[in-house]
C-alpha cells in the first residue's frame, strides 16, 4: 500500500512537470524534432508494459548495460523502489501531455502574445495566462495519470521482484495473495484498489460535468 502511494506520489508530479513542459513546447513553438518528441510521448501506449519492464531490467539489472556501474556505486534500481517508480513514470508518460497538447494547440498563442505585449515576462505569462487556461484539462490528465500509476501491473511486475513488504505494490500484492489461494485477503486488497478507482472515476465525472468545455478539446 505504502509503495503504491510512493510510486504514484513520485511518478505523477514528474509526469505533470514533464507533460506540461512537453505540451507547452509542442503547442506553442516550432522546432526541429517536434515529431520525434510526439512519437516518443506516444511510445508507452504502443509498447506493452511488460516489454518496458524488461528493458529496464536490461538497462539497470545486474547483467544489464549500466549494471556494473550501478553496483560499484551501490545503487539498486531493479527489484527496488527506484525501479518501480521508473516503470510507473514510463507507463504514465503520455497521459498529461496527450490531454494538454490538443487543447493548447487549439488555444493558440494569441493570449500569450497579448500578455507579452502588455509587459508580462515568461513566468508571469505562464502562471497568469497559460496555466489558468489549461487548469481543468491539466487536472484531468493528472487524474488519469494517477489512476494508471496506482493500477499499473505489467511493467512494475517485471522490475519489482515481488519482495513482499518491500517491493510489492497493491496490484502485485493482489496477484500474490490470489496465487496463494488466500482469496479473502486478495479480494480485500482488490476492493481497496477498486475503491480508489471509484473515487478517481467520481472526480473525473465531476470534472467532465463542470468543466467539460475546457477539457473537450482533447476529446474531439
Amino acid at each position: 500500500m505504502k509503495l503504491t502511494v510512493i510510486a504514484a506520489a513520485i511518478a505523477v508530479p514528474c509526469n505533470l512537470v514533464f507533460g506540461l513542459a512537453a505540451s507547452w513546447a509542442i503547442a506553442k513553438f516550432e522546432f526541429v524534432g517536434k515529431n520525434v518528441l510526439i512519437t516518443l510521448i506516444d511510445l508507452p501506449f504502443s509498447v506493452s508494459p511488460v516489454i518496458a519492464g524488461l528493458i529496464y531490467v536490461l538497462l539497470f539489472g545486474a547483467q544489464g548495460l549500466l549494471g556494473p556501474w550501478l553496483s560499484q556505486h551501490n545503487i539498486q534500481i531493479v527489484f527496488a523502489v527506484p525501479g518501480i517508480v521508473l516503470a510507473t513514470i514510463f507507463v504514465t508518460f503520455p497521459f498529461v501531455a496527450r490531454e494538454l497538447i490538443p487543447l493548447m494547440q487549439e488555444q493558440g498563442t494569441e493570449d500569450e502574445e497579448a500578455a507579452r505585449s502588455l509587459g508580462a515576462n515568461g513566468w508571469q505569462t505562464f502562471f497568469r495566462v497559460t496555466l489558468p487556461n489549461i487548469r481543468w484539462a491539466l487536472l484531468y490528465g493528472v487524474l488519469l495519470c494517477n489512476a494508471r500509476a496506482m493500477g499499473e501491473f505489467g511493467a512494475v511486475s517485471v522490475v519489482s521482484g515481488h519482495i513482499r513488504g518491500l517491493t510489492n505494490t497493491m496490484p502485485l500484492h493482489v496477484e500474490i495473495l490470489y496465487n496463494e489461494y488466500n482469496f479473502v485477503a486478495a479480494f480485500a486488497v482488490a476492493s481497496v484498489l477498486a475503491f480508489l478507482a471509484l473515487v478517481t472515476l467520481i472526480i473525473k465525472s465531476i470534472l467532465e460535468w463542470r468543466h467539460g468545455g475546457e477539457i473537450s478539446a482533447a476529446r474531439a
Binding site: E110, D111, A114, A115, P132, N133
Partner: peptide
C-alpha cells in the same frame, strides 16, 4: 511602449 489590439481580441477568459 506599444499597445497591440489583436484581431480576435485575445482577452483572458478566466
Amino acid at each position: 511602449r506599444v499597445g497591440f489590439v489583436f484581431q480576435h481580441y485575445a482577452l483572458f477568459k478566466h
